[in-house]
Design a protein around this nucleic acid. Structure first.
Length: 586
RNA sequence: GCGGCGGUCGUCUAGCCUGGUCUAGGACGCCGGCCUUCCAAGCCGGAGAUCCCGGGUUCAAAUCCCGGCCGCCGCACCA
């Protein structure tokens, strides 16, 4: 018995949605090509994401594009160079592979995380740790960096670079510039759609575990003391999301709870209000891709499963036939981790500014040096004195003056009269303060969504015909133009209709080959939602029929209305049968 | 990365064990024609296969042997 998933992948390959890359050279695991229909479908999925996450939040979310090739320092700062690795050790006898740090940790009961390959190898040798399965001797510990490595320009160690494993860092390093562009307003979302690459050790699951794929990501920056999420959470009304918490998972429970995003935040289930908000949008997004609520939920990562940058993460899980529980998006609370790290590594000021409700009064010491007197007193040596004074902070200088009991103070080996330096106390009124914004990140894998859209759209009618019930806005091809008989004048009228569709930018094709039933079936199989048939009545009344894929019912529409009707039904979500056109009795 | 199984037209598959008659057969799909007044009809014709790749054994390899690649399953891995 062929499973649903197998049928979907077979259809997807046969009809040109996707196939394995580099086929003529035998194929390479972890890479997939998108065919003509796959490209169109993916574009529609990305566009739907853009509509929900960016366009509907234009007041605060903007999209950018940054390079895939990234200098190593960026991933040193982000922690990927350190954490995006696995230490593996292999048994020389039975060939079993182990995570070296886990093995050492278990065998010796010590914290092994963060040790180098050499240190781990030494521990294994010194303590005589052997293969837990067969007792064989273990080989050298090898490090697997899951980042793809390259070099920028001519080879040299200094220009080491990586292909990005996530788009996020492109947003973090650009935070300040975009923040300025958005006139220093928070919350601020920076969105990006782009290719990322991860050198997976052993990708197995076809198009859902790829070494290179498209990510759709938002880094959403906000002020943790004033998130300003209330209106957004309220606007979701009674919309509920399903969550399986880490606590539930710890107890072995499998049934997600259903809560509104507002409740989820207020009850502390989701620790960031914005994380909760974007999870709701993600849930709606998947519904629009054809996945019912009952087939998805958010699974909280256990503390031990959290990525190095995350304080809390939820994976959005969709139940699939082919791949079981499939993670389609990750929702991470990255708090201030990334900006702090980039501030530290780059030296850049990545702070946001917060207006204080009330100006704060801060006592401050103001240190003044009487430059004229220094010149008079030291003449040629004044230059050295200024240098000495500049070598210490004004705070230290103030302390020196205040604690001094002699008429002179010693600064950098120079004796300076105390009264050259005047220390005054001033009160400064502070109106703003600096802080590192917190970040939540909803992040989607486009190819997984593409697979899911296909699996959820796939259906077989009682007569065995395959129908891809993609919503019209997702369908790669919107209309098929079919002359009932492949002769004139039906053919010419069909070409005329097709041309008007092309000019309106509606993806469509003409099919005059084979019986009309066969042509409907061909169109159904790739999810064409509307079939336009030029029949005998067309010749008399210049009307055509438009057939709805899912019900196979038809309405009769004037040739000149076809483009308008399709636009309404494809892009405006209107129902073909509620536009006032007469139905065809079949 | 380890172990098991597998890889033949676009798809599914016959042939492999027992090497030759395989210039690789079939079905579906595709293309052209005939026919056809709305749901994979019929008839005729046609295109389409580096038998995964490389090496070996042999007079002779899709077939046997070795290595590699790819896929599936199990183990491991999956920030």
């Amino acid at each position: 018995m062929t499973s649903l998933g197998e049928k979907v992948l077979d259809l997807a390959t046969r009809r040109g949605f996707l196939w394995q890359s580099f086929e003529i050279y035998g194929g390479v695991a972890g890479f997939y090509d998108l065919g003509p229909l796959g490209s169109l479908l993916k574009r529609n999925i990305v566009e739907l994401w853009r509509k929900l996450f960016v366009k509907k939040h234009q007041e605060m979310v903007v999209e950018i594009e940054t390079p895939v090739i990234t200098p190593a320092v960026v991933f040193r700062a982000s922690g990927h160079e350190e954490h995006f690795t696995d230490y593996a050790v292999q048994c020389t006898k039975c060939g079993r592979l182990y995570r070296a740090d886990h093995l050492v940790q278990e065998a010796l009961g010590i914290e092994a995380e963060g040790l180098t390959a050499e240190e781990l190898s030494k521990l294994i040798r010194d303590h005589g740790i052997r293969c837990p399965a067969c007792g064989g001797e273990l080989g050298e510990v090898k490090k697997f960096l899951l980042l793809f490595t390259t070099h920028i320009g001519p080879y040299s160690p200094e220009n080491l670079a990586y292909l990005r494993p996530e788009a996020a860092q492109g947003m973090f390093v650009n935070f300040k510039r975009v923040y300025e562009l958005m006139r220093r307003k928070l919350p601020l979302g920076i969105a990006q759609v782009g290719r990322v690459a991860r050198n997976e050790i052993s990708p197995r699951q076809g198009p859902v575990r790829l070494r290179e794929f498209t990510i759709m990501e938002i880094e959403f920056f906000y002020d943790p003391e004033n998130p300003r999420a209330d209106d957004y959470l309220q606007s979701l009304g009674s919309y509920r999301i399903r969550i399986l918490t880490a606590e539930q998972r710890g107890r072995g429970e499998e049934k997600p709870i259903e809560v509104t995003p507002l409740e989820a935040y207020r009850e502390g289930i989701v620790v960031s209000p914005w994380l909760s908000y974007w999870m709701a949008i993600a849930s709606m997004f998947l519904e629009l891709l054809g996945v019912p609520q009952s087939r998805m939920y958010f699974e909280e990562k256990m503390p031990s499963e959290l990525a190095h940058y995350s304080k809390q993460t939820f994976d959005q899980i969709v139940l699939t036939d082919r791949f079981g529980k499939l993670e389609v998006s990750g929702h991470a609370y990255r708090h201030s981790y990334d900006l702090e790290r980039h501030a530290k590594f780059s030296g850049a000021d990545l702070y946001a500014i917060r207006q204080l409700a009330e100006p704060k009064e801060v006592k401050k010491l103001v240190v003044r040096v009487d430059k004229k007197r220094v010149l008079e007193l030291f003449k040629d040596r004044a230059r050295d004195v200024f240098r000495a004074l500049a070598s210490v902070s004004s705070e230290e200088l103030a302390n020196l003056v205040r604690s001094s009991t002699t008429p002179t103070i010693s600064v950098g080996g120079v004796e300076i009269p105390r009264d050259v330096v005047k220390v005054e106390e001033a009160v400064e009124r502070i109106h703003v303060e600096k802080f590192i914004p917190h970040v939540v990140e909803p992040s989607f894998g486009a190819e997984r969504l593409l697979y899911i859209a296909l699996e959820y759209a796939y259906s077989e009618d009682s007569d065995g015909r395959v129908v891809l019930r993609l919503p019209p806005y997702l369908a790669p091809i919107k209309a098929a133009v079919l002359p009932l008989l492949s002769r004139e004048p039906m053919l010419s009228i069909a070409r005329e209709v097709l041309k008007s569709l092309f000019e309106a930018g509606i993806e469509s094709y003409l099919d005059a080959s084979g019986s009309i039933g066969r042509r409907y079936a061909r169109a159904d199989e790739i999810g064409v939602p509307f079939a336009i048939t030029i029949d005998h009545e067309t010749l008399e009344s210049r009307t055509v029929t438009i057939r709805d894929r899912d019900s196979r019912r038809q309405v009769r529409v004037p040739v000149d209305d076809v483009v308008r009707v399709l636009k309404l039904c494809v892009y405006e979500g209107r129902n073909l049968f509620e536009l006032g056109y007469p139905p065809l009795n079949s």
